[in-house]
């Protein structure tokens, strides 16, 4: 098990390096002088020169990359061209909001998707199953931003129950969490149901029933644990979608997280900031995938060996 985890981590390192190279290289893909881009359109010549010197942009590409990488590793990701604040400071102040939002949304998503998926599979082809599947279908065909707008119109504008933006109290969390959580739950619920139905056909489920175990035990202990294996495998790919979803939702609810920081940075062509956030998000996705791999091994003993 430990060997497996260590190997996964070692495999992730070149991946992260590759991503960083890509993120750094992106600047060079854009037409024109990367330094001019980093400095902002109206920057005076002295600023441009100082950035060029500080980040080694007068040197060959690989030297530039390693200069940049060593700075990034030490936590120096440059300064925002707009606010002149250090990028690392900006990220540190926004990250907790994104994490909190995603934490609650994930929790909500899991709390809806798992019970509903299990019940739908257990009671397949009954009205319970049809209702759950209808919920999933509606949830999946509704884009996140659209659901957000509907929720805002109903619960914020008309009923005036929850605020539409800000982060001060728990009430501020309700609408963005609900939006993210529901769009997430719909797809996940379907995955739980399909995967569980597949597993319920397995011989070992029949064995569990032959032992005289209660149906609940058969479902949760014997079937669900196995159904988790394909679910967890897909979860890795899903993380990328979650990131995109968060960016959209944060923008709509004016949520002061990384996603909104990214959209404003993009609009203002604040490239140091954009670079740093994209790097952060990519590393986070790699890390989450690593976690998924470990989880996979925890669930399925056959993975640990190979």
């Amino acid at each position: 098990m430990l060997k497996y985890v260590v190997r996964r981590i070692l495999l992730a390192i070149p991946l992260v390096l590759g991503i960083s190279l890509l993120v750094f290289g992106l600047m060079h893909l854009a037409p024109g002088d990367p330094v001019r881009m980093l400095a902002g359109r109206e920057a005076p010549q002295e600023v441009i020169d100082s950035i060029r010197r500080e980040w080694g942009f007068d040197k060959p590409f690989l030297v530039q990359y390693f200069t940049w990488l060593s700075k990034v590793l030490r936590g120096d990701m440059g300064r925002s061209v707009i606010s002149q604040l250090p990028v690392s400071y900006l990220i540190k102040s926004r990250l907790p909001y994104t994490l909190k939002l995603n934490f609650w949304a994930t929790l909500l998503g899991l709390a809806i998707a798992f019970p509903l998926g299990v019940i739908a599979a257990a009671k397949r082809q009954t009205w319970v199953d049809y209702a759950a599947s209808a919920f999933a279908l509606v949830g999946m065909s509704m884009p996140g931003f659209w659901l957000a707008l509907v929720l805002i119109i109903v619960f914020a504008v008309q009923l005036n129950w929850f605020p539409t933006s800000g982060t001060g109290t728990w009430a501020h969390y309700v609408l963005p969490t609900a939006t993210l959580g529901f769009s997430w739950a719909a797809g996940l619920m379907r995955m739980v149901r399909t995967s569980l139905l597949e597993v319920l056909k397995e011989d070992y489920v029949r064995t569990a029933r032959a032992k005289g175990l209660r149906e609940k035990v058969v479902l949760v202990k014997h079937a669900l644990r196995n159904a988790l294996i394909p679910i967890v495998t897909v979860l890795g790919t899903w993380l990328a979608y979650m990131v995109v979803g968060t960016v959209v939702i944060e923008t709509i609810f004016a949520w002061p997280g990384l996603g909104r920081l990214l959209t404003t940075a993009l609009l203002q062509r604040d490239f140091f900031l954009v670079q740093a956030i994209i790097l952060m998000i990519s590393v986070a996705v790699v890390a989450a995938n690593l976690l998924v791999d470990v989880l996979y091994a925890v669930i399925d003993p056959r993975v640990r060996l190979s």
């Binding site: 011989d203 029949r206 064995t207 032959a210 014997h222 644990r225 294996i229 669930i299 003993p301």
Partner: peptide, 14 residues
């Protein structure tokens, strides 16, 4: 009851 397919009758995760 014991079954015909011993390869698939035990739960792989326990």
């Amino acid at each position: 009851m014991i079954f015909q397919e011993p390869m698939t009758c035990l739960n792989p995760v326990y």
